[in-house]
């Protein structure tokens, strides 16, 4: 910011140190405005708004169950303050597709058995989506590195990796970005 606006902000800064803020989240294309205390995380606010496909796991950035896309970049929503997502696009697993219109990644996870208890699955799908957006033809090592922030305690990962390879192939044949 420059000019007179800066001066105004400067003088107003004591008032600007806030504990609550009106935040507009564009969740899967729908704008939702809520007043949130600044210490609430994006994870907490999304779930309170009903987006319970975003899962709460470790709450310290180890497990990836809460992963969402923020303006297309995958982040842990437990480590993102809700107010930092103000005005930005949030994509959850339901934003990629639902039971009637599944995304190729979701179809592949079902067909390959890439999910058992299912708790890690939405986060796995979001990290995989971000990986394929950047690298449409990943090696198994690329997938391991891309999913290094996502824990699964059921599958042993093998079927998750094969699901992602299968989805990548489907998307390449369609000539689409993930």
């Amino acid at each position: 910011m420059t000019g007179p606006e800066t001066t105004t902000r400067w003088k107003a800064r004591e008032a600007e140190m806030v504990t609550e803020k009106d935040v507009t989240l564009h969740v899967n294309g729908q704008a939702e405005t809520v007043a949130v205390p600044v210490h609430r995380t994006l994870l907490e606010v999304l779930r309170e708004l009903g987006h319970v496909e975003v899962k709460c796991g470790c709450e310290k950035g180890d497990c990836g169950a809460c992963a969402v896309l923020l303006d297309g970049e995958v982040v842990d929503s437990c480590l993102t303050l809700a107010c930092k997502a103000d005005g930005r696009a949030v994509t959850t697993a339901l934003g990629l597709g639902g039971p009637n219109d599944p995304h190729p990644l979701q179809t592949a996870f079902i067909e390959h058995g890439g999910t058992q208890c299912g708790y890690c699955t939405p986060g796995m799908i979001m990290a995989a989506k971000a990986l394929l957006d950047e690298n449409p033809d990943p090696s198994d090592d690329d997938i391991k590195r891309g999913l290094s922030g996502n824990l699964c305690r059921c599958t042993g990962y093998t079927r998750i990796f094969s699901a992602i390879q299968a989805a990548a192939e489907v998307l390449r044949k369609r000539g689409e970005a993930a």
Binding site: G64, V74, S148, G149
Partner: peptide
């Protein structure tokens, strides 16, 4: 760390 942490 992992992909999400590297992004932040």
């Amino acid at each position: 760390a992992g992909l999400m942490v590297r992004n932040a």
